[in-house]
Design a protein around this nucleic acid. Sequence first.
DNA 1: GTCGAACTTTGCGCTGGCGCAAACAGTTCT
DNA 2: AGAACTGTTTGCGCCAGCGCAAAGTTCGAC
Lengths: 238, 238
Amino acid sequence: MNEISPRKTLPRLDESLLTHLPPFSKLERRDIRTILDQATSRRYDEGVAIFDEGAPADRFFMLLDGYVRVVRFTPTGEQVTALHIPAGQLLGIAKAIGRETYPATALTATESIVLSWPTRLWDTFVSSYDGFSTETYKTVGSRMGEMNNRIVEMATQQVEQRVANALLRLINQTGRKTPDGIEVDFPITRQDLSELTATTLHTVSRLLSAWEKRGLVQSKRKRIKVTDPHALVVIGQG
Amino acid sequence: MNEISPRKTLPRLDESLLTHLPPFSKLERRDIRTILDQATSRRYDEGVAIFDEGAPADRFFMLLDGYVRVVRFTPTGEQVTALHIPAGQLLGIAKAIGRETYPATALTATESIVLSWPTRLWDTFVSSYDGFSTETYKTVGSRMGEMNNRIVEMATQQVEQRVANALLRLINQTGRKTPDGIEVDFPITRQDLSELTATTLHTVSRLLSAWEKRGLVQSKRKRIKVTDPHALVVIGQG
DNA sequence: GTCGAACTTTGCGCTGGCGCAAACAGTTCT
DNA sequence: AGAACTGTTTGCGCCAGCGCAAAGTTCGAC
Protein backbone atom coordinates (compact mmCIF):
# COMPACT_ATOMS: atom_id res chain seq x y z
CA MET A 1 0.00 0.00 0.00
CA ASN A 2 0.86 3.66 -0.14
CA GLU A 3 2.46 3.55 -3.53
CA ILE A 4 2.20 6.70 -5.57
CA SER A 5 -0.56 6.65 -8.16
CA PRO A 6 0.07 8.09 -11.61
CA ARG A 7 -0.02 11.84 -12.09
CA LYS A 8 -3.53 13.15 -12.45
CA THR A 9 -4.61 13.01 -16.04
CA LEU A 10 -5.59 16.66 -16.18
CA PRO A 11 -3.08 18.33 -18.50
CA ARG A 12 -1.91 20.72 -15.80
CA LEU A 13 -2.84 21.50 -12.23
CA ASP A 14 -4.33 24.93 -11.98
CA GLU A 15 -2.23 27.61 -10.35
CA SER A 16 -5.13 28.91 -8.32
CA LEU A 17 -4.83 25.77 -6.21
CA LEU A 18 -1.82 27.22 -4.43
CA THR A 19 -1.86 30.98 -4.87
CA HIS A 20 -3.98 31.66 -1.80
CA LEU A 21 -2.21 29.21 0.52
CA PRO A 22 0.19 30.87 2.99
CA PRO A 23 3.37 28.97 2.15
CA PHE A 24 3.01 29.98 -1.49
CA SER A 25 1.07 33.22 -1.36
CA LYS A 26 4.06 35.46 -1.88
CA LEU A 27 5.22 33.71 -5.02
CA GLU A 28 5.08 34.72 -8.66
CA ARG A 29 2.86 32.83 -11.05
CA ARG A 30 5.96 31.44 -12.68
CA ASP A 31 7.32 29.90 -9.47
CA ILE A 32 3.97 28.37 -8.68
CA ARG A 33 3.93 26.87 -12.16
CA THR A 34 7.31 25.28 -11.53
CA ILE A 35 6.21 23.97 -8.17
CA LEU A 36 3.04 22.46 -9.58
CA ASP A 37 4.90 20.85 -12.44
CA GLN A 38 7.06 19.03 -9.92
CA ALA A 39 4.11 17.93 -7.82
CA THR A 40 2.26 14.68 -7.79
CA SER A 41 -1.45 14.86 -7.16
CA ARG A 42 -3.36 12.04 -5.59
CA ARG A 43 -6.77 11.25 -4.19
CA TYR A 44 -7.08 9.17 -1.02
CA ASP A 45 -10.15 7.36 0.25
CA GLU A 46 -11.41 7.97 3.74
CA GLY A 47 -9.50 6.17 6.46
CA VAL A 48 -6.28 5.36 4.65
CA ALA A 49 -2.69 6.20 5.52
CA ILE A 50 -0.89 8.93 3.59
CA PHE A 51 2.34 7.99 5.32
CA ASP A 52 3.35 5.80 8.23
CA GLU A 53 5.22 6.51 11.43
CA GLY A 54 8.85 5.53 11.13
CA ALA A 55 8.90 5.29 7.34
CA PRO A 56 11.63 7.20 5.49
CA ALA A 57 10.36 10.69 4.80
CA ASP A 58 10.82 10.59 1.05
CA ARG A 59 8.02 13.04 0.24
CA PHE A 60 6.31 16.03 1.77
CA PHE A 61 2.66 16.92 1.27
CA MET A 62 0.12 19.69 0.90
CA LEU A 63 -3.45 18.80 1.81
CA LEU A 64 -5.61 20.47 -0.84
CA ASP A 65 -8.94 19.08 0.24
CA GLY A 66 -10.17 16.92 3.10
CA TYR A 67 -9.06 16.34 6.67
CA VAL A 68 -6.22 14.36 8.10
CA ARG A 69 -5.74 12.86 11.55
CA VAL A 70 -2.17 12.49 12.76
CA VAL A 71 -1.97 9.49 15.05
CA ARG A 72 0.55 7.41 16.91
CA PHE A 73 0.29 3.78 17.88
CA THR A 74 1.44 2.36 21.17
CA PRO A 75 3.28 -0.96 21.43
CA THR A 76 -0.01 -2.51 22.57
CA GLY A 77 -1.87 -1.25 19.52
CA GLU A 78 -3.84 1.53 21.13
CA GLN A 79 -3.86 4.70 19.13
CA VAL A 80 -3.59 8.31 20.16
CA THR A 81 -4.49 11.24 17.99
CA ALA A 82 -1.90 13.99 18.10
CA LEU A 83 -3.36 16.54 15.70
CA HIS A 84 -6.04 17.24 13.16
CA ILE A 85 -4.95 18.93 9.95
CA PRO A 86 -7.43 20.84 7.80
CA ALA A 87 -7.12 21.50 4.07
CA GLY A 88 -4.53 24.09 3.06
CA GLN A 89 -1.73 22.93 5.33
CA LEU A 90 1.52 21.16 4.74
CA LEU A 91 2.10 17.79 6.34
CA GLY A 92 4.80 15.20 6.48
CA ILE A 93 7.38 17.94 6.74
CA ALA A 94 9.88 15.82 8.63
CA LYS A 95 12.73 17.61 6.90
CA ALA A 96 11.67 20.89 8.49
CA ILE A 97 12.42 19.47 11.90
CA GLY A 98 15.60 17.67 10.99
CA ARG A 99 14.14 14.19 10.79
CA GLU A 100 14.69 11.47 8.23
CA THR A 101 11.53 9.53 9.07
CA TYR A 102 7.92 10.50 9.68
CA PRO A 103 7.24 10.96 13.38
CA ALA A 104 3.63 9.79 13.19
CA THR A 105 1.06 8.25 10.89
CA ALA A 106 -1.27 10.43 8.84
CA LEU A 107 -4.75 9.00 8.27
CA THR A 108 -7.39 10.63 6.12
CA ALA A 109 -10.54 11.48 8.07
CA THR A 110 -12.38 12.07 4.81
CA GLU A 111 -11.69 11.48 1.18
CA SER A 112 -8.78 13.83 0.47
CA ILE A 113 -6.80 15.41 -2.32
CA VAL A 114 -3.09 15.77 -1.69
CA LEU A 115 -0.15 17.21 -3.58
CA SER A 116 3.30 15.89 -2.82
CA TRP A 117 6.91 16.50 -3.72
CA PRO A 118 10.07 14.44 -3.24
CA THR A 119 11.91 15.46 -0.10
CA ARG A 120 15.04 16.23 -2.11
CA LEU A 121 13.23 19.36 -3.34
CA TRP A 122 12.78 20.61 0.24
CA ASP A 123 15.99 22.60 0.39
CA THR A 124 15.21 24.22 -2.92
CA PHE A 125 11.78 25.25 -1.71
CA VAL A 126 13.21 26.72 1.46
CA SER A 127 15.96 28.67 -0.24
CA SER A 128 14.26 29.70 -3.47
CA TYR A 129 10.75 30.58 -2.47
CA ASP A 130 10.18 33.70 -0.49
CA GLY A 131 7.99 33.20 2.53
CA PHE A 132 7.86 29.44 2.24
CA SER A 133 10.23 28.85 5.08
CA THR A 134 8.66 31.46 7.35
CA GLU A 135 5.17 30.14 6.86
CA THR A 136 6.30 26.57 7.29
CA TYR A 137 7.87 27.34 10.62
CA LYS A 138 4.75 29.15 11.69
CA THR A 139 2.91 25.93 11.01
CA VAL A 140 5.45 24.00 13.04
CA GLY A 141 5.12 26.54 15.82
CA SER A 142 1.38 26.42 15.96
CA ARG A 143 1.43 22.64 16.02
CA MET A 144 3.87 22.72 18.90
CA GLY A 145 1.55 25.14 20.63
CA GLU A 146 -1.34 22.81 20.10
CA MET A 147 0.57 19.84 21.46
CA ASN A 148 1.61 21.91 24.42
CA ASN A 149 -1.97 22.79 25.16
CA ARG A 150 -2.99 19.17 24.98
CA ILE A 151 -0.33 18.26 27.50
CA VAL A 152 -1.49 20.95 29.87
CA GLU A 153 -5.11 19.94 29.42
CA MET A 154 -4.44 16.28 29.97
CA ALA A 155 -2.38 17.08 33.01
CA THR A 156 -4.84 19.36 34.72
CA GLN A 157 -8.36 18.88 33.46
CA GLN A 158 -11.14 16.42 34.07
CA VAL A 159 -12.40 14.23 31.28
CA GLU A 160 -15.56 16.30 30.79
CA GLN A 161 -13.53 19.48 30.35
CA ARG A 162 -11.13 17.85 27.94
CA VAL A 163 -13.89 16.51 25.75
CA ALA A 164 -15.65 19.88 25.75
CA ASN A 165 -12.43 21.67 24.79
CA ALA A 166 -11.56 19.14 22.11
CA LEU A 167 -14.98 19.58 20.58
CA LEU A 168 -14.66 23.34 20.66
CA ARG A 169 -11.27 23.15 19.00
CA LEU A 170 -12.69 20.92 16.29
CA ILE A 171 -15.50 23.29 15.44
CA ASN A 172 -13.12 26.24 15.53
CA GLN A 173 -10.67 24.64 13.17
CA THR A 174 -12.95 22.70 10.94
CA GLY A 175 -16.48 23.74 11.78
CA ARG A 176 -19.24 24.29 9.27
CA LYS A 177 -22.12 26.62 10.11
CA THR A 178 -25.61 25.20 9.84
CA PRO A 179 -28.95 26.88 10.56
CA ASP A 180 -29.04 25.53 14.10
CA GLY A 181 -25.40 25.25 15.12
CA ILE A 182 -21.86 24.48 14.05
CA GLU A 183 -21.04 21.01 12.86
CA VAL A 184 -17.72 19.22 12.76
CA ASP A 185 -17.54 18.80 9.03
CA PHE A 186 -15.89 15.46 8.81
CA PRO A 187 -17.11 12.10 10.08
CA ILE A 188 -16.00 11.55 13.65
CA THR A 189 -16.85 8.66 15.92
CA ARG A 190 -17.03 8.51 19.70
CA GLN A 191 -13.93 6.37 19.45
CA ASP A 192 -12.09 9.12 17.54
CA LEU A 193 -13.03 11.69 20.14
CA SER A 194 -11.90 9.40 22.92
CA GLU A 195 -8.51 8.94 21.25
CA LEU A 196 -8.22 12.69 21.07
CA THR A 197 -9.00 13.19 24.73
CA ALA A 198 -7.38 10.17 26.33
CA THR A 199 -10.54 8.55 27.56
CA THR A 200 -12.86 5.73 26.46
CA LEU A 201 -15.58 5.74 23.87
CA HIS A 202 -18.04 4.85 26.62
CA THR A 203 -17.32 7.96 28.59
CA VAL A 204 -17.51 10.14 25.48
CA SER A 205 -20.83 8.57 24.59
CA ARG A 206 -22.21 9.25 28.06
CA LEU A 207 -21.03 12.85 27.94
CA LEU A 208 -22.51 13.52 24.52
CA SER A 209 -25.80 11.94 25.57
CA ALA A 210 -25.91 14.14 28.64
CA TRP A 211 -25.09 17.24 26.65
CA GLU A 212 -27.69 16.35 24.06
CA LYS A 213 -30.33 16.09 26.80
CA ARG A 214 -29.33 19.56 27.95
CA GLY A 215 -29.58 20.87 24.39
CA LEU A 216 -25.90 21.74 23.94
CA VAL A 217 -25.19 19.40 21.04
CA GLN A 218 -26.96 17.22 18.52
CA SER A 219 -25.35 14.11 17.21
CA LYS A 220 -25.97 11.37 14.78
CA ARG A 221 -23.76 8.52 13.79
CA LYS A 222 -20.34 10.02 12.97
CA ARG A 223 -21.73 13.54 13.07
CA ILE A 224 -21.60 16.05 15.88
CA LYS A 225 -23.23 19.46 15.85
CA VAL A 226 -22.72 22.00 18.60
CA THR A 227 -25.82 24.09 19.21
CA ASP A 228 -24.66 25.99 22.29
CA PRO A 229 -20.94 26.66 22.06
CA HIS A 230 -20.98 29.06 24.96
CA ALA A 231 -22.25 26.45 27.38
CA LEU A 232 -19.46 24.16 26.22
CA VAL A 233 -16.91 26.88 26.87
CA VAL A 234 -18.23 27.12 30.41
CA ILE A 235 -17.90 23.37 30.89
CA GLY A 236 -14.42 23.56 29.40
CA GLN A 237 -13.25 25.94 32.10
CA GLY A 238 -14.60 23.90 34.99
CA MET B 1 13.19 41.26 37.44
CA ASN B 2 14.74 39.65 34.44
CA GLU B 3 16.74 42.67 33.44
CA ILE B 4 20.02 42.00 31.75
CA SER B 5 23.03 42.21 33.99
CA PRO B 6 26.21 43.85 32.71
CA ARG B 7 28.52 41.86 30.49
CA LYS B 8 30.73 39.53 32.37
CA THR B 9 33.87 41.32 33.42
CA LEU B 10 36.21 38.78 31.88
CA PRO B 11 37.91 40.52 28.98
CA ARG B 12 36.54 38.06 26.44
CA LEU B 13 34.50 34.90 26.53
CA ASP B 14 36.59 31.96 25.50
CA GLU B 15 35.91 30.42 22.10
CA SER B 16 36.07 26.91 23.46
CA LEU B 17 32.73 27.55 25.12
CA LEU B 18 30.96 27.12 21.81
CA THR B 19 33.22 25.17 19.48
CA HIS B 20 31.98 21.77 20.58
CA LEU B 21 28.28 22.63 20.66
CA PRO B 22 26.33 21.30 17.66
CA PRO B 23 24.79 24.56 16.43
CA PHE B 24 28.26 26.09 16.23
CA SER B 25 30.52 23.13 15.67
CA LYS B 26 30.96 23.66 11.95
CA LEU B 27 32.08 27.25 12.30
CA GLU B 28 35.45 28.89 11.91
CA ARG B 29 37.17 30.39 14.89
CA ARG B 30 36.57 33.81 13.42
CA ASP B 31 32.79 33.37 13.23
CA ILE B 32 32.66 32.08 16.77
CA ARG B 33 34.60 35.13 17.87
CA THR B 34 32.02 37.39 16.23
CA ILE B 35 29.17 35.45 17.80
CA LEU B 36 30.71 35.63 21.25
CA ASP B 37 31.38 39.33 20.94
CA GLN B 38 27.70 39.89 20.32
CA ALA B 39 26.63 37.70 23.21
CA THR B 40 25.64 38.66 26.70
CA SER B 41 26.66 36.26 29.44
CA ARG B 42 24.72 35.94 32.62
CA ARG B 43 24.49 33.77 35.70
CA TYR B 44 21.09 32.84 37.14
CA ASP B 45 20.36 31.52 40.60
CA GLU B 46 18.46 28.30 41.04
CA GLY B 47 14.72 28.61 40.59
CA VAL B 48 14.47 31.87 38.70
CA ALA B 49 12.87 32.67 35.35
CA ILE B 50 15.07 33.21 32.30
CA PHE B 51 12.03 34.32 30.33
CA ASP B 52 8.29 34.26 30.83
CA GLU B 53 5.48 32.78 28.82
CA GLY B 54 3.84 35.39 26.64
CA ALA B 55 6.62 37.96 26.89
CA PRO B 56 8.00 39.39 23.64
CA ALA B 57 10.81 37.14 22.45
CA ASP B 58 13.48 39.81 22.29
CA ARG B 59 16.41 37.48 22.96
CA PHE B 60 17.39 33.88 22.32
CA PHE B 61 19.61 31.82 24.60
CA MET B 62 22.26 29.14 24.85
CA LEU B 63 22.45 27.26 28.12
CA LEU B 64 26.16 26.86 28.85
CA ASP B 65 25.87 25.29 32.25
CA GLY B 66 23.02 24.13 34.46
CA TYR B 67 19.55 22.78 33.81
CA VAL B 68 16.35 24.46 32.82
CA ARG B 69 12.74 23.40 33.24
CA VAL B 70 10.26 24.68 30.69
CA VAL B 71 6.88 25.08 32.35
CA ARG B 72 3.43 26.39 31.65
CA PHE B 73 0.94 27.78 34.11
CA THR B 74 -2.78 27.10 34.00
CA PRO B 75 -5.35 29.82 34.66
CA THR B 76 -5.77 28.35 38.15
CA GLY B 77 -2.05 28.59 38.91
CA GLU B 78 -1.13 24.94 38.62
CA GLN B 79 2.03 24.35 36.70
CA VAL B 80 2.95 21.72 34.16
CA THR B 81 6.48 20.93 33.06
CA ALA B 82 6.79 20.58 29.31
CA LEU B 83 10.50 19.86 28.92
CA HIS B 84 13.85 19.69 30.65
CA ILE B 85 16.76 21.29 28.87
CA PRO B 86 20.35 20.26 29.66
CA ALA B 87 23.45 22.40 29.16
CA GLY B 88 24.57 22.84 25.58
CA GLN B 89 21.17 23.50 24.06
CA LEU B 90 19.50 26.57 22.68
CA LEU B 91 16.33 27.83 24.30
CA GLY B 92 13.86 30.61 23.84
CA ILE B 93 14.09 30.17 20.10
CA ALA B 94 10.60 31.46 19.44
CA LYS B 95 11.77 32.94 16.17
CA ALA B 96 12.60 29.49 14.86
CA ILE B 97 8.96 28.53 15.05
CA GLY B 98 7.54 31.78 13.76
CA ARG B 99 6.49 33.20 17.10
CA GLU B 100 6.91 36.70 18.46
CA THR B 101 6.45 35.70 22.10
CA TYR B 102 7.84 32.93 24.27
CA PRO B 103 5.46 29.97 24.35
CA ALA B 104 6.37 28.94 27.90
CA THR B 105 8.33 29.98 30.95
CA ALA B 106 11.92 28.83 31.45
CA LEU B 107 12.95 28.24 35.06
CA THR B 108 16.44 27.31 36.15
CA ALA B 109 16.56 23.99 37.97
CA THR B 110 20.08 24.75 39.16
CA GLU B 111 22.32 27.75 39.15
CA SER B 112 22.97 28.31 35.45
CA ILE B 113 25.17 30.16 33.01
CA VAL B 114 23.48 31.44 29.91
CA LEU B 115 24.57 33.30 26.80
CA SER B 116 22.01 35.33 24.93
CA TRP B 117 21.65 37.39 21.78
CA PRO B 118 19.05 39.87 20.62
CA THR B 119 16.44 38.23 18.44
CA ARG B 120 17.21 40.64 15.60
CA LEU B 121 20.43 38.66 15.07
CA TRP B 122 18.48 35.45 14.50
CA ASP B 123 18.15 35.81 10.75
CA THR B 124 21.85 36.56 10.46
CA PHE B 125 22.73 33.45 12.42
CA VAL B 126 20.48 31.30 10.26
CA SER B 127 21.75 32.64 6.97
CA SER B 128 25.42 33.21 7.75
CA TYR B 129 26.41 30.29 9.88
CA ASP B 130 26.68 26.91 8.30
CA GLY B 131 24.89 24.18 10.18
CA PHE B 132 23.27 26.51 12.66
CA SER B 133 19.86 26.25 11.09
CA THR B 134 20.04 22.50 10.56
CA GLU B 135 21.06 21.81 14.12
CA THR B 136 18.48 24.20 15.48
CA TYR B 137 15.71 22.43 13.64
CA LYS B 138 16.94 19.11 14.88
CA THR B 139 16.53 20.47 18.36
CA VAL B 140 13.02 21.62 17.54
CA GLY B 141 12.30 18.21 16.09
CA SER B 142 13.52 16.30 19.07
CA ARG B 143 11.55 18.50 21.42
CA MET B 144 8.44 17.87 19.37
CA GLY B 145 9.18 14.19 19.56
CA GLU B 146 9.48 14.40 23.28
CA MET B 147 6.21 16.24 23.64
CA ASN B 148 4.59 13.71 21.41
CA ASN B 149 5.80 10.90 23.58
CA ARG B 150 4.50 12.61 26.67
CA ILE B 151 1.07 12.90 25.08
CA VAL B 152 1.04 9.24 24.20
CA GLU B 153 2.24 8.27 27.66
CA MET B 154 -0.27 10.41 29.45
CA ALA B 155 -3.02 9.08 27.24
CA THR B 156 -2.28 5.41 27.62
CA GLN B 157 -0.20 4.70 30.71
CA GLN B 158 -0.84 4.35 34.40
CA VAL B 159 0.72 6.75 36.85
CA GLU B 160 3.36 4.25 37.97
CA GLN B 161 4.51 3.68 34.40
CA ARG B 162 4.62 7.38 33.66
CA VAL B 163 6.71 8.15 36.69
CA ALA B 164 9.09 5.30 35.90
CA ASN B 165 9.48 6.50 32.32
CA ALA B 166 9.96 10.10 33.34
CA LEU B 167 12.69 9.07 35.73
CA LEU B 168 14.38 6.99 33.08
CA ARG B 169 14.27 9.88 30.66
CA LEU B 170 15.80 12.16 33.25
CA ILE B 171 18.73 9.90 33.92
CA ASN B 172 19.22 9.34 30.21
CA GLN B 173 19.31 13.01 29.42
CA THR B 174 20.95 14.38 32.48
CA GLY B 175 22.18 11.43 34.50
CA ARG B 176 25.46 11.30 36.35
CA LYS B 177 27.09 7.96 37.05
CA THR B 178 27.93 7.17 40.66
CA PRO B 179 29.50 4.04 42.15
CA ASP B 180 26.11 2.54 42.97
CA GLY B 181 23.78 3.92 40.33
CA ILE B 182 22.85 6.82 38.11
CA GLU B 183 21.73 10.04 39.70
CA VAL B 184 19.62 12.84 38.30
CA ASP B 185 22.23 15.52 38.57
CA PHE B 186 20.09 18.47 39.43
CA PRO B 187 17.88 19.00 42.45
CA ILE B 188 14.42 17.62 41.81
CA THR B 189 11.54 17.44 44.25
CA ARG B 190 8.61 15.05 44.38
CA GLN B 191 6.53 18.02 43.37
CA ASP B 192 8.67 18.57 40.26
CA LEU B 193 8.30 14.95 39.26
CA SER B 194 4.56 15.11 39.77
CA GLU B 195 4.32 18.16 37.51
CA LEU B 196 6.24 16.23 34.89
CA THR B 197 3.94 13.23 35.06
CA ALA B 198 0.58 14.82 35.68
CA THR B 199 0.02 13.40 39.12
CA THR B 200 0.35 14.57 42.74
CA LEU B 201 3.44 14.79 44.90
CA HIS B 202 1.80 12.34 47.30
CA THR B 203 1.54 9.64 44.69
CA VAL B 204 5.11 10.22 43.55
CA SER B 205 6.30 10.01 47.14
CA ARG B 206 4.49 6.72 47.67
CA LEU B 207 5.93 5.29 44.48
CA LEU B 208 9.48 6.32 45.30
CA SER B 209 9.15 4.89 48.81
CA ALA B 210 7.91 1.61 47.40
CA TRP B 211 10.71 1.47 44.85
CA GLU B 212 13.25 2.31 47.50
CA LYS B 213 12.00 -0.63 49.60
CA ARG B 214 12.46 -2.86 46.58
CA GLY B 215 15.97 -1.50 46.06
CA LEU B 216 15.36 0.14 42.68
CA VAL B 217 16.16 3.69 43.72
CA GLN B 218 17.70 5.67 46.54
CA SER B 219 16.53 9.14 47.30
CA LYS B 220 17.30 11.97 49.58
CA ARG B 221 15.80 15.39 49.72
CA LYS B 222 15.84 16.77 46.16
CA ARG B 223 18.08 13.93 44.98
CA ILE B 224 17.11 10.74 43.21
CA LYS B 225 19.47 7.93 42.28
CA VAL B 226 18.41 4.96 40.19
CA THR B 227 20.18 1.79 41.24
CA ASP B 228 18.30 -0.70 39.07
CA PRO B 229 17.40 0.96 35.77
CA HIS B 230 16.35 -2.28 34.18
CA ALA B 231 13.66 -2.94 36.75
CA LEU B 232 12.33 0.55 36.11
CA VAL B 233 12.21 -0.16 32.39
CA VAL B 234 10.08 -3.20 33.14
CA ILE B 235 7.71 -1.14 35.25
CA GLY B 236 7.62 1.45 32.49
CA GLN B 237 6.26 -1.05 30.00
CA GLY B 238 3.53 -2.44 32.23
C1' DG C 1 -35.65 -7.08 2.24
C1' DT C 2 -32.14 -9.40 4.85
C1' DC C 3 -27.79 -9.74 6.71
C1' DG C 4 -23.73 -8.23 8.84
C1' DA C 5 -20.68 -4.80 10.21
C1' DA C 6 -19.86 -0.69 12.32
C1' DC C 7 -21.28 2.49 15.61
C1' DT C 8 -23.80 3.90 19.88
C1' DT C 9 -26.07 3.62 24.32
C1' DT C 10 -26.68 2.22 29.00
C1' DG C 11 -26.18 -0.31 33.36
C1' DC C 12 -23.27 -1.91 37.08
C1' DG C 13 -19.41 -2.79 40.01
C1' DC C 14 -14.77 -1.80 41.02
C1' DT C 15 -10.42 0.59 41.86
C1' DG C 16 -6.40 3.71 41.00
C1' DG C 17 -5.05 7.52 42.58
C1' DC C 18 -6.63 12.02 44.41
C1' DG C 19 -7.92 15.13 48.34
C1' DC C 20 -7.33 16.00 52.93
C1' DA C 21 -4.81 15.91 57.09
C1' DA C 22 -1.17 15.51 60.17
C1' DA C 23 3.34 14.49 61.51
C1' DC C 24 8.14 14.33 60.44
C1' DA C 25 12.87 15.63 58.71
C1' DG C 26 16.27 18.22 56.71
C1' DT C 27 18.14 23.30 55.66
C1' DT C 28 18.79 28.10 56.33
C1' DC C 29 18.56 32.15 58.94
C1' DT C 30 19.16 34.74 63.16
C1' DA D 1 20.32 26.67 69.61
C1' DG D 2 15.91 27.75 68.21
C1' DA D 3 12.73 29.31 64.70
C1' DA D 4 10.92 29.28 60.27
C1' DC D 5 10.71 27.14 56.01
C1' DT D 6 10.75 23.77 52.64
C1' DG D 7 10.39 19.23 51.38
C1' DT D 8 8.79 14.24 52.54
C1' DT D 9 6.07 10.48 54.38
C1' DT D 10 1.93 8.06 55.57
C1' DG D 11 -2.91 7.07 56.69
C1' DC D 12 -7.69 7.15 55.37
C1' DG D 13 -11.90 7.75 52.76
C1' DC D 14 -13.94 8.67 48.52
C1' DC D 15 -15.36 8.99 43.70
C1' DA D 16 -14.55 9.83 38.62
C1' DG D 17 -14.17 7.23 35.18
C1' DC D 18 -12.75 2.61 33.50
C1' DG D 19 -13.75 -2.31 32.37
C1' DC D 20 -17.06 -5.43 31.23
C1' DA D 21 -21.35 -6.75 29.31
C1' DA D 22 -25.31 -6.59 26.63
C1' DA D 23 -28.60 -4.55 23.79
C1' DG D 24 -29.99 -1.15 20.46
C1' DT D 25 -29.37 1.53 16.05
C1' DT D 26 -27.78 2.89 11.49
C1' DC D 27 -25.75 1.93 7.23
C1' DG D 28 -24.14 -0.46 3.27
C1' DA D 29 -23.86 -4.74 0.65
C1' DC D 30 -25.99 -8.31 -1.59
